[in-house]
């Protein structure tokens, strides 16, 4: 059954037509606020591990539903516990839910067999492809083209300092 579920989930493309309902928990004690900012009013004080359902995200905040209320918490205080994929096919709605435990624990790497796509063997045995490298190069854009593209979305570069990292200034 589980295997069938994975196959099914794999077949569902992650597109705009596919909605994901995420449930989870807050992993620290945190206040549920009525606005997505720190000056919002406290609706409820949540203890670590309080279950929540994520409604939407805005900036660095997530709107969540608890057993009693709907409000906002910082996105980084949430750990997702389960995901429900809702897919509309011919007007019908199939809902597949997989509940998983142990979230927030230090999970280690899963099995290394059965990797689809890139795996060690295919990389080790691969020959260099000049043709693909040339194709890659053909997509390259200049710094100025990229800057122009960013402006069309209203993006502006900001001065932000690194934290916890030393980066040497060089080319």
């Amino acid at each position: 059954m589980r295997k069938l579920l994975y196959i099914f989930l794999f077949l569902i493309p992650f597109t705009a037509d596919t909605a994901a309902l995420m449930t989870g928990k807050v992993f620290i004690d945190i206040n549920l606020l009525d606005e997505p900012n720190n000056s919002g009013n406290v609706i409820e004080s949540l203890n670590a591990n309080t279950p929540i359902t994520i409604q939407q995200r805005q900036s660095s905040w997530s709107q969540v539903e608890t057993a009693a209320n709907i409000g906002w918490v910082p996105t980084l205080t949430i750990r997702i516990v389960s995901v429900t994929q809702q897919s509309n096919v011919d007007g019908a709605t199939d809902v597949v839910t997989e509940r998983l435990g142990g979230v927030g624990t230090k999970k280690t790497v899963v099995a290394t067999f059965g990797i689809r796509g890139i795996d060690e063997e295919s990389l080790k045995g691969a020959e260099l492809s000049e043709e693909q490298l040339a194709l890659l190069e053909s997509y390259q854009v200049s710094k100025s083209v990229a800057a122009q593209f960013s402006r069309t979305a209203g993006l502006k570069s900001k001065r932000v300092d690194y934290f916890d990292v030393t980066v040497e200034v060089e080319q």
Binding site: S82, V83, L100, V103, R116, I118
Partner: peptide
């Protein structure tokens, strides 16, 4: 977070 929940489904696609 998105990758984390994809990983929870233990899909082989995230194994690497």
């Amino acid at each position: 977070q998105e990758i984390g929940h994809a990983g929870m489904n233990n899909q082989s696609d995230v194994r690497l």
